[in-house]
Structures are given as structure tokens and as C-alpha cells.
Design a protein around this nucleic acid. Structure first.
Length: 111
DNA sequence: AAGTTGACCCTCC
DNA sequence: AGGAGGGCCAACT
């Protein structure tokens, strides 16, 4: 495994993305939670970068990842905010004023 | 090699 | 309830 060093840091991204892929439909997870489950406790920032890395090509449901406080990590004016809101709503997650009820939709961390 | 940044998180005011 | 600052670690310039 690990092939050659050509992959560099991409391995970490894959780990994080792998966790995101594990998030069940209708649920959301925070960056810190995803990072921790990916084996990177405290590296929530890396999770953010990982989600920004070819998520579109890897089919990673980045929209299921939100802030720990349950709010979207994007400004209301951002297109991503709207997209994320719609995608979440499409999965049954209620998004109120850019915020999600973590008490109801936060992923337990397991399947 | 050093400095800056980052789809963050936590604490304090 | 909202805003500001500090912290952690890796990637990027």
C-alpha cells in the first residue's frame, strides 16, 4: 500500500473523505467529529481542506459536514450555502436560518 | 527554511 | 447572543 510518495498528503484527505462517505443519509457531522473518526483528533481544519479536495470527483457528500455548533460553514451569500441547504433538505435535514438541529440530525459516529 | 493561511474549535468578554 | 482572540497542525507560498 501507500504506493509511491507521489500521493503525498492525499492519503489523509481520503481518510477524512472516507468518514464523510460513512455519514448516513439524513444526518450531519461536525468537522471535529469527522476528523476524529478519520483518526485525526483535533485536526478539524484538515478535514475542511480535505473536503475541498476533489470532493466533486470523489462524490463526497461534503454538504453533510457542518460546524460543531450546527451552523453552515459558509456565508449566506455563498452559493455553497444554498447548495448545502438544499441537499440537506433533500435528505430530510431541516435547515433553519443556516443552522441544523444537531440534537436531531447529528451523526452518532457509527452506523 | 520561515511565514502565512485555513470549509475549525474553544474560551473569554 | 454575538464578537474577538488564541490554539493546533498540516499544507502552501
Amino acid at each position: 500500500m501507500q504506493d509511491n510518495q507521489t500521493t503525498t498528503s492525499i492519503q489523509k484527505y481520503k481518510a477524512i473523505q472516507g468518514v464523510v462517505l460513512r455519514i448516513p443519509v439524513g444526518c450531519v457531522a461536525s468537522y471535529g467529529q469527522v476528523a476524529a473518526l478519520a483518526g485525526l483528533p483535533g485536526r478539524a481544519r484538515l478535514a475542511g481542506k480535505a473536503l475541498g479536495f476533489k470532493v466533486n470527483e470523489l462524490h463526497v457528500p461534503w454538504y453533510r459536514v457542518i460546524r460543531s455548533n450546527g451552523s453552515i460553514a459558509f456565508p449566506i451569500d455563498s452559493l455553497q450555502f444554498k447548495t448545502q441547504t438544499e441537499l440537506l433538505a433533500d435528505e430530510g435535514v431541516e435547515v433553519k436560518n443556516g443552522r441544523v438541529s444537531m440534537k436531531k440530525f447529528q451523526w452518532d459516529g457509527r452506523l
